[in-house]
Design a protein around this nucleic acid. Sequence first.
DNA 1: AGCGCTTACGAAAGCGCTTTCGTAGCCTAA
DNA 2: TTAGGCTACGAAAGCGCTTTCGTAAGCGCT
Lengths: 344, 344
Amino acid sequence: MPKPGTRLRLIDVAERAGVSLATASRSLAGREGVSEEVADRVRQVARELGYVANPYARTLAGGASSTVGLVVHQIDDPYFAEIASGVIEIAAEEGLLVQICHSGRDPDAELRQLRHLIAQRVGIILIAGSGYNDPRVEAEARAELSEFQSQGGRVAVIGRHALGVDAVLPDNEAGSRALAGHLLDLGHRHIAIAAGKEGLTTITDRIAGVSSALHQCGLSLDNIPIVHSDFTRGGGRMAAEQILSDHPETTAIIALNDAMAMGVLSTLRAHHIPVPEQMSVVGFDDVSVAADLAPSLTTIRLPMTDMGRMALSLALKPRSARPRRRPTGHLLVVRDSTGPAPSR
Amino acid sequence: MPKPGTRLRLIDVAERAGVSLATASRSLAGREGVSEEVADRVRQVARELGYVANPYARTLAGGASSTVGLVVHQIDDPYFAEIASGVIEIAAEEGLLVQICHSGRDPDAELRQLRHLIAQRVGIILIAGSGYNDPRVEAEARAELSEFQSQGGRVAVIGRHALGVDAVLPDNEAGSRALAGHLLDLGHRHIAIAAGKEGLTTITDRIAGVSSALHQCGLSLDNIPIVHSDFTRGGGRMAAEQILSDHPETTAIIALNDAMAMGVLSTLRAHHIPVPEQMSVVGFDDVSVAADLAPSLTTIRLPMTDMGRMALSLALKPRSARPRRRPTGHLLVVRDSTGPAPSR
DNA sequence: AGCGCTTACGAAAGCGCTTTCGTAGCCTAA
DNA sequence: TTAGGCTACGAAAGCGCTTTCGTAAGCGCT
């Protein structure tokens, strides 16, 4: 920690500008009660001297904390990395700092991280990643957040709902409906779903979309296998293995995110099953590598970086009475991993 | 920002434990001058009450800042995301917070971020990513960092040197020597290099490794094309296009990182050039998706997550007189993207 | 018993800011 | 002219911690 007394302080600026500490503070904060002339002079001096306020002192004194806490499942998952990238971009513009912490897809860990961030007095909390189908955890998180908000904290969530706060929300159901619709249009009737860990709302929503598409064709979710493993490439591999061995009639696999889809593709390759000739595969998210895979992946594009940007912007706006929802667009991107169902 | 007076303060803990503020502080900080008995009681009370120190007050009062600033080129690049993941892991264990900022592979932006972090009074600075072949920038960064260190700040760099601070360093030269050696062993004599933006030390080092391998075979770097574009998939695509059109005799492409290799593979696919039958491709880093590509990528494995962990651990240790270097292992991982040079 | 020394603790002084409160100085109106 | 109300600013009080300094109590020693 830098030794005290060594950096430029506000009082130095004030002296140089020939005003009191209070006036200098007001000038830089843009508060009223200072004549334009004096305020300009102070700002000028501050700029010349390259003054940067000590955030610790500022926050301690009751100013707004200028750090935003971002909770992600795992930063080295491209989905979250892209969101983080958007958040960092806006934060840089606003002069805020971003603190990232991992929840590791564990509801309790997420809650811990949340509490830790609050205890650390961040000013803004952003939570990315699926919610949990666990009323206890959701209720606790909600209580924690509303307490935080009542003390002036700002919150927004990305890709999850039910927390009673502002949210940036993709339409998971519509997305996977489009995905399933695409496969059905191609004639696939033996579709399997490679899903992540049970208990994530994202998964529930995405499965609901598939169900809805099936119903439109007079089919039902009951007849299609859903393999739950993990929202990672490894999880995709495991799910694919299971689908191949338990449901050999399958001609299309819906992976509920791109990471799993990549695992599925890798397993199919290992089994020498040509994609899309013998098996179609779709993902969800359109992480940037999806286009560079072989075969390139048919998926739903979510604007992750934008979602990150939107979430922070949303949190920065004055709070409204009711939680706001910003829907994100989504787009079916058809690439080379899907094709007509093979004829028998 | 949470309203003051509302959270648990150290004085509350002190009162509950029946000691003074000073004693409570000393107890929790593990300083001496407190009897074991009293210290234990204070710690016990703090734990029961769930006390978390206000980091702003703590830092302002001259305690160590408990936030680590991590500068990366781009967080949604898997190489950096994996490093960040390791840093976040250790930080979580140590109760530190990680602030991430982007330098965008721009030396001046990096310098700005550095200054910003210092101005923000972080306690530890970690810089990941290549250095720059730009004496001015390097000198300024070095000066800034040494000033920071002289005021008690801790610093470590990851994957770059020449900054006069502790470093976690892969052996870029040996790695690419192994890579080139592998291709030479396979009989390739028309090798091209897809490199990132000129001016990065990482690139210089990796090219030097190739050069050294070539020399051992009586060949020289002079005869092989080096295309500079960008350390991204897009950059890989551009480089590949140029290599294909300007150097059709090429049978192997060394991409200087995995992202570029992925771009190269994607371009080769677009040109219907079979890999590795007609063209071998190697990358560098072994980002986790490299194993799941089609074909899977021959590359040099760098333990990115470990590098992140090591860097933070290194910075946390008491400073030594001279900058320490922690070499990281590297491993040639031969996969499906390389094969014997095609016979004419 | 009296001295100095150590140990264990409390009182209080900041750290650099924001904000409240007080007060000159000025303007307006009677 | 004087009372009343602004406006523009300064003095000073914290924010919650760490750390320095002072001191009472306990110890061994002469």
